[in-house]
Amino acid sequence: MDVSEPAIRVEGLVRSFGRTQALRGLDLEVPPGTVTALLGPNGAGKTTLVRILATLIRPDRGTARILGRDVVREAFAVRSLIGLTGQYAALDELLTGRENLRLIGRLAHLGERRARARAEDLLHLVGIAEAAGRPVTTYSGGMRRRLDIAAGLMGSPAVLVLDEPTTGLDPRGRIEVWELIESLVRQGTTLLLTTQHLEEADRLADAIAVIDRGRIVASGTDEELKRRVGGEVLEVRLADAGQASRARAALEPMAAGPVRVEGALVSVPVRHPSGAVVHAVRRLDAAAVEAEDVALRRPTLDDVFLVLTGHAAGADPEPDVWRVA
């Protein structure tokens, strides 16, 4: 394997399902030893990309390589290089956690001894050593997802792909999974993770690629992206929605991007959060606009999308291709 090759290199990837274009010329590069988050709403093409990288489906056009190996022509070799954890925990519910991992280890052709040893190591790493002898049916959502991540790691893959690792988890489960991913990152695992949450990408990734309608529309570090988004968002809740346009006019001069109005809620991206609230209250007073509440919040995916694409998140529907290909 060539060390100078990027862990993942995707060029001009196109894939349609019937008349739905899931990927429309997607380019992406993930250097070894780094964590890249693919940030985008439902239907942006994240899962389609992940399935192509894991050799589960083929692209219509374009190429994808894992450490220089083509996912179509060298699919068999790629399967030894990539570990996959999907949106739905792909575990055998009747078997125990330990049996699940050993099964994956054997199918990864580790050999019996290494499969057993690696299963024990990973059960400790993901924190389910104590429940290892229980069937998966008894596990919580967070435990299942952590076991699923361990399953993705069984074959010691060069690249681990996590498709929305925290979707569907309760807050506690999400934190458990985040902490696990952070410990993997510290060990230098090369990771591509998809997410709908900027907060998640921000917390876990070195680089963020924003995906919209089958294309990467922006990429960079979280700092670079947030600079483009304008840092934080000032939210003003008006006492009277009828005053929205006056509020918009009053706040526009301090905005670092487009101002959004939804009913009585006015969202203003601001570059310098310090003093922004005081500033806004003065401007609203001067314009005789009555505000019920003024607060700063961190930008969400919606804000990122509005700034980067000019339209709100949640675009084309993506077919449910994960379970039934």
């Binding site: 399935r51 894991a54 050799t55 589960l56 068999f76 399967r79 030894s80 990539i82 996959l84 999907g86 739905y88 925990a89 792909a90 575990l91 055998d92 519910e93 994956i104 199918l107 990864a108 052709h109 399953a151 074959g155 994960w322 379970r323 039934v324 290909a325």
Partner: peptide
């Protein structure tokens, strides 16, 4: 196995 995503897991391994 197809419904529960296990088939995908098996197919993503060198099996």
């Amino acid at each position: 196995d197809l419904e529960k995503g296990l088939m995908d897991r098996f197919r993503s391994l060198p099996v």
